[in-house]
Design a protein around this nucleic acid. Structure first.
Ligand SMILES: [Zn+2]
Ligand SMILES: [Zn+2]
Ligand SMILES: [Zn+2]
Ligand SMILES: [Zn+2]
Lengths: 163, 163
DNA sequence: TCTATGTATGTAATATCATAACACGTCAAC
DNA sequence: GTTGACGTGTTATGATATTACATACATAGA
Protein backbone atom coordinates (compact mmCIF):
# COMPACT_ATOMS: atom_id res chain seq x y z
CA UNK A 1 0.00 0.00 0.00
CA UNK A 2 1.55 3.30 -1.03
CA UNK A 3 0.10 5.03 1.97
CA UNK A 4 -2.52 4.50 4.58
CA UNK A 5 -5.27 6.25 2.64
CA UNK A 6 -5.37 4.21 -0.56
CA UNK A 7 -7.06 0.84 -0.71
CA UNK A 8 -5.10 -2.34 -1.00
CA UNK A 9 -3.85 -3.30 -4.42
CA UNK A 10 -4.46 -7.02 -4.12
CA UNK A 11 -7.82 -7.08 -5.92
CA UNK A 12 -6.81 -4.62 -8.62
CA UNK A 13 -5.00 -5.60 -11.79
CA UNK A 14 -1.35 -4.96 -11.18
CA UNK A 15 2.12 -6.05 -12.14
CA UNK A 16 2.26 -8.86 -9.67
CA UNK A 17 5.74 -10.01 -10.59
CA UNK A 18 6.99 -6.61 -9.59
CA UNK A 19 4.71 -6.56 -6.55
CA UNK A 20 6.10 -9.84 -5.28
CA UNK A 21 9.68 -9.05 -6.15
CA UNK A 22 9.44 -5.75 -4.39
CA UNK A 23 7.95 -7.32 -1.27
CA UNK A 24 10.76 -9.85 -1.19
CA UNK A 25 13.38 -7.14 -1.48
CA UNK A 26 11.84 -5.16 1.32
CA UNK A 27 11.75 -8.32 3.39
CA UNK A 28 15.45 -8.90 2.81
CA UNK A 29 16.24 -5.35 3.78
CA UNK A 30 14.09 -5.44 6.87
CA UNK A 31 15.50 -8.67 8.21
CA UNK A 32 19.01 -7.52 7.50
CA UNK A 33 18.35 -4.32 9.40
CA UNK A 34 16.82 -6.11 12.37
CA UNK A 35 19.44 -8.82 12.54
CA UNK A 36 16.92 -11.58 11.83
CA UNK A 37 18.20 -14.35 9.62
CA UNK A 38 16.51 -14.82 6.28
CA UNK A 39 17.54 -18.38 5.54
CA UNK A 40 16.79 -20.39 2.38
CA UNK A 41 13.72 -22.12 3.82
CA UNK A 42 12.30 -18.89 5.15
CA UNK A 43 12.95 -17.02 1.94
CA UNK A 44 11.40 -19.79 -0.10
CA UNK A 45 8.29 -19.87 2.08
CA UNK A 46 7.89 -16.15 1.66
CA UNK A 47 8.31 -16.51 -2.11
CA UNK A 48 5.64 -19.18 -2.15
CA UNK A 49 3.24 -17.01 -0.18
CA UNK A 50 4.00 -14.11 -2.48
CA UNK A 51 3.04 -15.99 -5.62
CA UNK A 52 -0.60 -15.06 -5.19
CA UNK A 53 -2.71 -12.84 -3.00
CA UNK A 54 -4.19 -15.87 -1.34
CA UNK A 55 -3.74 -17.67 1.91
CA UNK A 56 -1.95 -21.01 1.98
CA UNK A 57 -2.24 -23.66 4.64
CA UNK A 58 0.94 -24.80 6.36
CA UNK A 59 0.66 -28.18 4.67
CA UNK A 60 0.32 -26.61 1.24
CA UNK A 61 3.52 -24.73 1.87
CA UNK A 62 5.13 -27.86 3.24
CA UNK A 63 4.29 -29.86 0.12
CA UNK A 64 5.95 -27.24 -2.01
CA UNK A 65 9.03 -27.24 0.17
CA UNK A 66 9.26 -30.99 0.19
CA UNK A 67 9.46 -31.39 -3.59
CA UNK A 68 12.19 -28.77 -3.60
CA UNK A 69 14.39 -30.77 -1.27
CA UNK A 70 13.62 -29.11 2.03
CA UNK A 71 12.33 -31.06 4.98
CA UNK A 72 8.88 -32.55 4.63
CA UNK A 73 7.66 -32.58 8.18
CA UNK A 74 5.14 -30.06 9.52
CA UNK A 75 7.51 -28.18 11.84
CA UNK A 76 9.61 -27.14 8.86
CA UNK A 77 6.68 -25.18 7.46
CA UNK A 78 5.27 -24.01 10.78
CA UNK A 79 8.58 -22.67 11.96
CA UNK A 80 9.26 -20.71 8.82
CA UNK A 81 5.72 -19.34 8.86
CA UNK A 82 5.99 -18.41 12.49
CA UNK A 83 9.22 -16.57 11.77
CA UNK A 84 7.63 -14.63 8.93
CA UNK A 85 4.63 -13.70 11.05
CA UNK A 86 6.87 -12.55 13.90
CA UNK A 87 8.87 -10.41 11.50
CA UNK A 88 5.71 -8.89 10.08
CA UNK A 89 6.33 -10.40 6.66
CA UNK A 90 3.28 -12.63 6.70
CA UNK A 91 -0.04 -12.80 8.46
CA UNK A 92 -2.09 -15.60 9.83
CA UNK A 93 -5.71 -15.70 8.71
CA UNK A 94 -7.64 -17.22 11.61
CA UNK A 95 -10.73 -17.92 9.62
CA UNK A 96 -8.83 -20.05 7.13
CA UNK A 97 -6.17 -21.57 9.33
CA UNK A 98 -3.79 -20.29 6.72
CA UNK A 99 -1.10 -17.74 6.01
CA UNK A 100 -0.67 -14.93 3.56
CA UNK A 101 2.28 -12.74 2.65
CA UNK A 102 2.13 -9.23 3.99
CA UNK A 103 1.62 -6.65 1.30
CA UNK A 104 3.12 -3.81 3.32
CA UNK A 105 6.11 -5.18 5.13
CA UNK A 106 7.87 -2.66 7.27
CA UNK A 107 4.82 -0.60 8.04
CA UNK A 108 3.99 -1.66 11.53
CA UNK A 109 0.37 -2.55 11.14
CA UNK A 110 -2.50 -4.69 12.26
CA UNK A 111 -4.75 -4.80 9.24
CA UNK A 112 -8.19 -6.20 8.69
CA UNK A 113 -8.41 -8.94 6.08
CA UNK A 114 -10.86 -9.10 3.23
CA UNK A 115 -11.37 -12.68 2.11
CA UNK A 116 -13.26 -13.41 -1.09
CA UNK A 117 -15.41 -16.48 -0.67
CA UNK A 118 -15.33 -17.23 -4.41
CA UNK A 119 -11.80 -16.65 -5.67
CA UNK A 120 -10.19 -16.85 -2.22
CA UNK A 121 -8.12 -13.77 -2.72
CA UNK A 122 -7.09 -12.00 0.47
CA UNK A 123 -6.42 -8.29 0.81
CA UNK A 124 -5.37 -6.19 3.72
CA UNK A 125 -7.48 -3.24 4.70
CA UNK A 126 -6.88 -0.39 7.06
CA UNK A 127 -8.38 -1.42 10.39
CA UNK A 128 -7.60 1.45 12.69
CA UNK A 129 -11.09 2.91 12.68
CA UNK A 130 -12.65 -0.47 13.36
CA UNK A 131 -10.09 -1.18 16.07
CA UNK A 132 -10.72 2.15 17.71
CA UNK A 133 -14.43 1.41 17.82
CA UNK A 134 -13.77 -2.06 19.20
CA UNK A 135 -11.36 -0.85 21.85
CA UNK A 136 -13.84 1.77 22.96
CA UNK A 137 -16.65 -0.73 23.23
CA UNK A 138 -14.39 -3.12 25.11
CA UNK A 139 -13.39 -0.38 27.49
CA UNK A 140 -17.04 0.12 28.40
CA UNK A 141 -16.97 -3.43 29.72
CA UNK A 142 -13.68 -2.77 31.51
CA UNK A 143 -11.84 -4.97 29.07
CA UNK A 144 -8.39 -4.04 27.85
CA UNK A 145 -7.72 -5.14 24.30
CA UNK A 146 -4.22 -6.30 23.54
CA UNK A 147 -4.66 -7.82 20.09
CA UNK A 148 -7.67 -8.15 17.88
CA UNK A 149 -8.59 -10.13 14.85
CA UNK A 150 -10.75 -8.49 12.21
CA UNK A 151 -11.57 -10.56 9.17
CA UNK A 152 -14.30 -10.05 6.60
CA UNK A 153 -15.73 -12.67 4.30
CA UNK A 154 -17.51 -11.56 1.17
CA UNK A 155 -17.08 -10.78 -2.48
CA UNK A 156 -14.10 -9.08 -4.02
CA UNK A 157 -14.74 -6.52 -6.77
CA UNK A 158 -13.97 -9.02 -9.53
CA UNK A 159 -16.21 -11.78 -8.31
CA UNK A 160 -18.90 -9.29 -7.47
CA UNK A 161 -18.90 -8.02 -11.01
CA UNK A 162 -18.88 -11.54 -12.42
CA UNK A 163 -21.96 -12.35 -10.36
CA UNK B 1 -27.74 -7.82 27.41
CA UNK B 2 -30.77 -5.82 28.51
CA UNK B 3 -30.33 -3.43 25.63
CA UNK B 4 -27.76 -2.46 23.10
CA UNK B 5 -26.30 0.33 25.19
CA UNK B 6 -25.20 -1.52 28.31
CA UNK B 7 -22.05 -3.60 28.38
CA UNK B 8 -22.14 -7.35 28.56
CA UNK B 9 -22.73 -8.90 31.93
CA UNK B 10 -20.35 -11.78 31.53
CA UNK B 11 -17.39 -10.23 33.37
CA UNK B 12 -19.50 -8.72 36.13
CA UNK B 13 -20.58 -10.56 39.24
CA UNK B 14 -24.08 -11.80 38.62
CA UNK B 15 -26.52 -14.53 39.47
CA UNK B 16 -25.23 -16.92 36.90
CA UNK B 17 -27.64 -19.70 37.72
CA UNK B 18 -30.45 -17.39 36.80
CA UNK B 19 -28.50 -16.08 33.82
CA UNK B 20 -28.04 -19.58 32.41
CA UNK B 21 -31.54 -20.72 33.25
CA UNK B 22 -32.98 -17.68 31.60
CA UNK B 23 -30.92 -18.18 28.44
CA UNK B 24 -32.06 -21.78 28.24
CA UNK B 25 -35.68 -20.77 28.58
CA UNK B 26 -35.36 -18.19 25.87
CA UNK B 27 -33.69 -20.78 23.69
CA UNK B 28 -36.59 -23.15 24.18
CA UNK B 29 -39.08 -20.45 23.33
CA UNK B 30 -37.17 -19.33 20.26
CA UNK B 31 -36.76 -22.77 18.79
CA UNK B 32 -40.38 -23.57 19.48
CA UNK B 33 -41.41 -20.40 17.69
CA UNK B 34 -39.19 -21.06 14.71
CA UNK B 35 -40.11 -24.71 14.40
CA UNK B 36 -36.55 -25.85 15.06
CA UNK B 37 -36.26 -28.98 17.13
CA UNK B 38 -34.56 -28.67 20.49
CA UNK B 39 -33.66 -32.29 21.06
CA UNK B 40 -31.99 -33.77 24.16
CA UNK B 41 -28.46 -33.67 22.72
CA UNK B 42 -28.86 -30.12 21.56
CA UNK B 43 -30.37 -28.96 24.82
CA UNK B 44 -27.64 -30.67 26.78
CA UNK B 45 -24.92 -29.10 24.67
CA UNK B 46 -26.45 -25.69 25.22
CA UNK B 47 -26.63 -26.36 28.95
CA UNK B 48 -22.98 -27.34 28.98
CA UNK B 49 -21.99 -24.18 27.12
CA UNK B 50 -24.10 -22.15 29.52
CA UNK B 51 -22.32 -23.42 32.60
CA UNK B 52 -19.65 -20.77 32.29
CA UNK B 53 -18.96 -17.71 30.21
CA UNK B 54 -16.14 -19.50 28.47
CA UNK B 55 -15.62 -21.18 25.16
CA UNK B 56 -15.50 -24.96 24.96
CA UNK B 57 -13.92 -27.02 22.22
CA UNK B 58 -16.08 -29.53 20.40
CA UNK B 59 -14.12 -32.38 21.96
CA UNK B 60 -14.64 -31.01 25.45
CA UNK B 61 -18.35 -30.94 24.82
CA UNK B 62 -18.17 -34.39 23.29
CA UNK B 63 -16.45 -35.83 26.34
CA UNK B 64 -19.21 -34.48 28.54
CA UNK B 65 -21.87 -35.93 26.28
CA UNK B 66 -20.19 -39.29 26.10
CA UNK B 67 -20.16 -39.90 29.85
CA UNK B 68 -23.84 -39.00 29.91
CA UNK B 69 -24.73 -41.71 27.46
CA UNK B 70 -24.89 -39.75 24.25
CA UNK B 71 -22.80 -40.69 21.23
CA UNK B 72 -19.09 -40.31 21.60
CA UNK B 73 -18.01 -39.57 18.07
CA UNK B 74 -17.09 -36.07 16.92
CA UNK B 75 -20.09 -35.51 14.64
CA UNK B 76 -22.41 -35.77 17.63
CA UNK B 77 -20.86 -32.67 19.14
CA UNK B 78 -20.20 -30.83 15.91
CA UNK B 79 -23.75 -31.27 14.69
CA UNK B 80 -25.32 -30.04 17.88
CA UNK B 81 -22.95 -27.08 17.98
CA UNK B 82 -23.66 -26.26 14.36
CA UNK B 83 -27.38 -26.32 15.10
CA UNK B 84 -26.98 -23.97 18.03
CA UNK B 85 -24.85 -21.58 15.99
CA UNK B 86 -27.38 -21.60 13.15
CA UNK B 87 -30.17 -20.84 15.59
CA UNK B 88 -28.21 -18.00 17.10
CA UNK B 89 -27.98 -19.76 20.45
CA UNK B 90 -24.23 -20.15 20.40
CA UNK B 91 -21.26 -18.58 18.69
CA UNK B 92 -18.09 -19.95 17.27
CA UNK B 93 -14.89 -18.27 18.46
CA UNK B 94 -12.47 -18.54 15.54
CA UNK B 95 -9.45 -17.64 17.55
CA UNK B 96 -10.02 -20.51 19.98
CA UNK B 97 -11.56 -23.09 17.68
CA UNK B 98 -14.26 -23.26 20.27
CA UNK B 99 -17.86 -22.42 21.02
CA UNK B 100 -19.64 -20.29 23.55
CA UNK B 101 -23.30 -19.90 24.47
CA UNK B 102 -24.93 -16.75 23.24
CA UNK B 103 -25.75 -14.35 26.04
CA UNK B 104 -28.49 -12.54 24.10
CA UNK B 105 -30.40 -15.17 22.19
CA UNK B 106 -33.20 -13.80 20.10
CA UNK B 107 -31.59 -10.47 19.45
CA UNK B 108 -30.35 -10.84 15.93
CA UNK B 109 -26.78 -9.83 16.38
CA UNK B 110 -23.23 -10.24 15.22
CA UNK B 111 -21.22 -9.31 18.25
CA UNK B 112 -17.54 -8.84 18.80
CA UNK B 113 -15.96 -11.16 21.33
CA UNK B 114 -13.76 -10.17 24.21
CA UNK B 115 -11.52 -13.04 25.24
CA UNK B 116 -9.52 -12.84 28.44
CA UNK B 117 -6.12 -14.42 27.97
CA UNK B 118 -5.82 -15.21 31.68
CA UNK B 119 -9.15 -16.50 32.91
CA UNK B 120 -10.46 -17.40 29.44
CA UNK B 121 -13.80 -15.76 29.99
CA UNK B 122 -15.56 -14.66 26.84
CA UNK B 123 -17.99 -11.77 26.61
CA UNK B 124 -19.96 -10.37 23.75
CA UNK B 125 -19.62 -6.73 22.87
CA UNK B 126 -21.57 -4.50 20.60
CA UNK B 127 -19.78 -4.56 17.25
CA UNK B 128 -21.91 -2.38 15.02
CA UNK B 129 -19.59 0.62 15.11
CA UNK B 130 -16.57 -1.53 14.34
CA UNK B 131 -18.44 -3.32 11.61
CA UNK B 132 -19.57 -0.10 10.07
CA UNK B 133 -15.99 1.10 9.95
CA UNK B 134 -14.85 -2.19 8.48
CA UNK B 135 -17.56 -2.27 5.85
CA UNK B 136 -16.74 1.27 4.82
CA UNK B 137 -13.06 0.50 4.50
CA UNK B 138 -13.84 -2.65 2.54
CA UNK B 139 -16.12 -0.69 0.23
CA UNK B 140 -13.20 1.56 -0.64
CA UNK B 141 -11.52 -1.51 -2.06
CA UNK B 142 -14.72 -2.53 -3.85
CA UNK B 143 -15.17 -5.41 -1.46
CA UNK B 144 -18.62 -6.37 -0.25
CA UNK B 145 -18.60 -7.76 3.27
CA UNK B 146 -21.06 -10.53 3.98
CA UNK B 147 -19.87 -11.72 7.37
CA UNK B 148 -17.08 -10.56 9.58
CA UNK B 149 -15.25 -11.88 12.56
CA UNK B 150 -14.20 -9.44 15.24
CA UNK B 151 -12.42 -10.91 18.22
CA UNK B 152 -10.31 -9.18 20.83
CA UNK B 153 -7.76 -10.81 23.08
CA UNK B 154 -6.77 -9.07 26.27
CA UNK B 155 -7.53 -8.71 29.94
CA UNK B 156 -10.96 -8.77 31.50
CA UNK B 157 -11.68 -6.31 34.33
CA UNK B 158 -11.10 -8.94 37.01
CA UNK B 159 -7.76 -10.17 35.72
CA UNK B 160 -6.68 -6.65 34.99
CA UNK B 161 -7.30 -5.66 38.58
CA UNK B 162 -5.56 -8.75 39.89
CA UNK B 163 -2.48 -7.84 37.86
C1' DT C 1 -53.05 -47.91 11.41
C1' DC C 2 -49.55 -48.26 8.12
C1' DT C 3 -46.12 -46.54 5.59
C1' DA C 4 -43.51 -42.99 3.34
C1' DT C 5 -40.66 -39.07 4.20
C1' DG C 6 -37.61 -36.09 6.30
C1' DT C 7 -34.72 -35.33 10.09
C1' DA C 8 -31.79 -36.60 13.96
C1' DT C 9 -28.49 -39.65 15.92
C1' DG C 10 -24.75 -43.08 16.14
C1' DT C 11 -20.49 -44.89 14.37
C1' DA C 12 -16.33 -45.79 11.62
C1' DA C 13 -12.99 -43.98 9.06
C1' DT C 14 -10.37 -40.35 7.51
C1' DA C 15 -8.83 -35.68 6.71
C1' DT C 16 -6.77 -31.52 8.30
C1' DC C 17 -4.25 -28.57 11.39
C1' DA C 18 -0.58 -28.09 15.01
C1' DT C 19 3.05 -29.06 18.55
C1' DA C 20 6.46 -31.61 21.64
C1' DA C 21 10.75 -33.71 21.91
C1' DC C 22 15.07 -34.81 20.37
C1' DA C 23 19.17 -35.24 17.06
C1' DC C 24 22.26 -33.01 14.12
C1' DG C 25 24.68 -29.30 11.63
C1' DT C 26 26.51 -24.65 11.29
C1' DC C 27 28.69 -20.68 12.77
C1' DA C 28 30.54 -17.18 15.67
C1' DA C 29 32.46 -16.02 20.36
C1' DC C 30 35.53 -17.07 23.52
C1' DG D 1 38.94 -26.14 19.48
C1' DT D 2 35.22 -25.88 22.69
C1' DT D 3 30.96 -23.74 23.84
C1' DG D 4 26.60 -21.97 23.01
C1' DA D 5 22.97 -20.16 20.13
C1' DC D 6 20.30 -21.03 16.45
C1' DG D 7 18.33 -23.33 12.53
C1' DT D 8 16.93 -27.53 10.37
C1' DG D 9 15.37 -32.32 10.07
C1' DT D 10 12.73 -36.18 11.88
C1' DT D 11 9.66 -38.97 14.79
C1' DA D 12 5.79 -39.11 17.17
C1' DT D 13 1.66 -37.40 18.87
C1' DG D 14 -2.08 -34.34 19.78
C1' DA D 15 -6.04 -31.44 18.45
C1' DT D 16 -9.61 -30.13 15.37
C1' DA D 17 -12.98 -31.33 11.74
C1' DT D 18 -15.47 -33.82 7.98
C1' DT D 19 -17.28 -37.65 4.94
C1' DA D 20 -19.96 -41.56 4.47
C1' DC D 21 -23.05 -44.69 5.86
C1' DA D 22 -26.29 -47.06 9.05
C1' DT D 23 -30.01 -46.70 12.27
C1' DA D 24 -33.74 -44.58 14.93
C1' DC D 25 -37.43 -41.58 15.32
C1' DA D 26 -40.93 -38.17 14.37
C1' DT D 27 -44.71 -36.81 11.77
C1' DA D 28 -47.73 -36.45 7.80
C1' DG D 29 -50.41 -38.55 4.34
C1' DA D 30 -52.91 -42.84 2.48
ZN1 LIG E 1 0.47 -6.72 6.17
ZN1 LIG F 1 -12.88 -12.77 -5.72
ZN1 LIG G 1 -23.90 -15.50 33.44
ZN1 LIG H 1 -9.95 -12.69 32.94
Amino acid sequence: MPDSTSPDLAFAAHDHTHCAHDALERAEALTKASGARMTPVRRRVLEILLEEHKALGAYDVLARLAVEGFGNQPPVAYRALEFLVEQGLAHRIQRLNAFTACTHPGQDHAPAFLICRLCHMVAEAEASAARTALDAEAARAGFQVERSTIEALGLCPNCREAA
